[in-house]
Design a binder for these strands. Structure first.
Length: 423
RNA sequence: GUGGGCGUGGUGUAGCGGCAGCACAAGGGCUUGUGGAGCCCUUAGGGGGAGUUCGAAUCUCCUCGUCCACCCCA
């Protein structure tokens, strides 16, 4: 590729090509539209945050914080982190801007790059993009349903096929602990039959054993009680209500008793929206309720629910669903010119047409008419305006209809309105 | 973080120890002012570094990147 060392993107970082940008733009437009409809306000927050925000918020023992966070120390000794996710920042924003005094609940959305130091794979990058929708200050099950609904409609609008909402409730911390204890007790009995990883998980993160893929483990897991059996009446009812509302909204969901999310702050509802084409299950959206996070970050408690979507993953899902985004509009008219006097005229007529809303293309950097017409043909324009020395002197243009090859002289003064009329 | 696969012009690929080839794309020409078909020409390549060898894209090692699985997650 290069004689000398060629500098490439760092591992796991990627460029967005014009095509990628077109997809991003398409997705962002859909977000904006739905944000408007569901009354979410857009915010942005810094890419660098105090590292403590994530240690406290996301959880110091989560993989995201423990292993995947880019942290750095500034010259003055502050410890900052490249944001690995958005939710703690949204809560920080809520507190820092006194949004507790705004009409509740506060509905916010964001969009931007996030960073996690992990081994890159398809759909998993070190710099990736997410958008998220969060509702803070409301505990009603209808809000859980609204968040799920919003993301589901968004993906459906982007024509992504085979969408399913996977949902579970993990209750409140106390209930989860009780469940976890039961789990550990039961699993200890058959510890020797578990895989190596799961034996390790038993001590560190027993809930993770639930979605181990080893057949031996799955068999054992199949006989275990579910979290939902350990929920308080309140939580169970909340969950029931969420499910009923999803039913009312005709959202296809699948109860997944093994769905446990990796972040500490989740309570009650947890969900993912997955695209499942033959065997492969790709999570496009993940989220849930996090009633404890506001308090965890040092404010009077406020319930909240939200979710985030991986934009790169949505793009690949759109592509695999056959949704192609056109990133360059087809022009209607091409301006070809020959000679310096003609070029002056050409650049003016280009501008006049553009101002009249005509989609116009040119190749001013090219001087052979042959090459210009070739370009016009490739672009598939309906008309080509040809201006040469002769036209420039006569005050005319040549208007060529590409499909038939016919051409006629038109007075320069009438050219623009004539073209406009004939398109 | 662990294990494995793969890196050849811009893109997709062939050759598998002996002249680096093809297709598409791009630019130019055949046509000094006329596109589409055709023909011709041009640009451009083995990720990087060491080693083995008379000779390496091809074998070995290192390194970088990428992909897959695990892990985790968006």
């Amino acid at each position: 590729m290069a004689e000398e060392e060629f500098i490439q993107t760092p591992k796991g970082m990627h460029d967005l090509t014009p095509e990628d940008c077109a997809y991003f733009y398409r997705i962002e437009n859909a977000c904006r539209r739905l944000a408007k409809d569901y009354r979410f306000d857009r915010i942005d927050f810094p890419i660098l945050e105090n590292a403590l925000l994530f240690k406290k918020g996301t959880g110091a023992n989560t993989d995201i914080v423990e292993k995947q966070m880019y942290t750095l120390r500034t010259k003055s000794g502050e410890v900052l982190a490249l944001r690995p996710e958005g939710t703690p920042s949204v809560v920080r924003f809520y507190l820092e801007h006194g949004a507790r005094t705004w009409p509740q609940p506060v509905k916010l959305w964001y969009w931007g790059p996030f960073f996690r130091y992990e081994k890159a794979q398809a759909g998993r990058y070190r710099q990736f993009h997410q958008f998220g929708f969060e509702i803070i200050g409301g505990g009603d099950a209808a809000l859980d349903a609204q968040v799920i609904n919003l993301f589901y409609r968004l993906l459906a609008e982007l024509k992504i096929k085979n969408l399913v909402v996977e949902i579970n409730s993990i209750g409140r911390p106390g209930e989860r602990e009780t469940y976890q204890k039961v789990l550990v007790k039961q699993l200890k009995k058959s510890e020797s039959e578990l895989c190596v990883d799961c034996r390790r998980r038993l001590a560190r993160n027993p809930l993770r054993i639930l979605d181990c893929k080893e057949p031996a483990c799955q068999e054992i897991v199949g006989q275990l009680p579910h979290v939902v059996d350990y929920l308080s009446d309140e939580c169970r009812q909340h969950f029931q209500e969420v499910l009923e509302l999803l039913g009312e909204l005709n959202i296809p969901y699948r109860l997944n008793p093994h769905l446990v999310r990796g972040l500490d702050y989740y309570t009650r509802t947890v969900f993912e929206i997955v695209q499942s084409d033959d065997e492969e299950k790709k999570a496009l959206v993940g989220g849930g309720r996090y009633d404890g996070l506001v308090e965890l970050l040092g404010a009077p408690p406020a319930p909240a629910v939200g979710a985030a979507a991986g934009i790169e993953r949505i793009v690949s899902a759109m592509k695999s669903s056959g949704h192609r985004v056109v990133y360059r509009e087809k022009p209607e008219v091409f301006i070809a010119q020959l000679g310096p006097a003609a070029k002056k005229e050409a650049i003016k007529i280009f501008e006049e047409l553009r101002q009249r809303g005509v989609k116009v293309a040119e190749a001013f950097g090219r001087n052979s008419l042959n090459a210009q017409l070739k370009r016009a043909d490739r672009l598939g324009v309906k008309y080509t305006v040809i201006i040469g020395q002769k036209e420039a002197l006569d005050g005319t243009i040549t208007l060529k209809t590409m499909s038939t090859g016919q051409q006629r002289f038109v007075k320069r003064s009438q050219a623009v309105s004539l073209i406009k009329k004939r398109l």
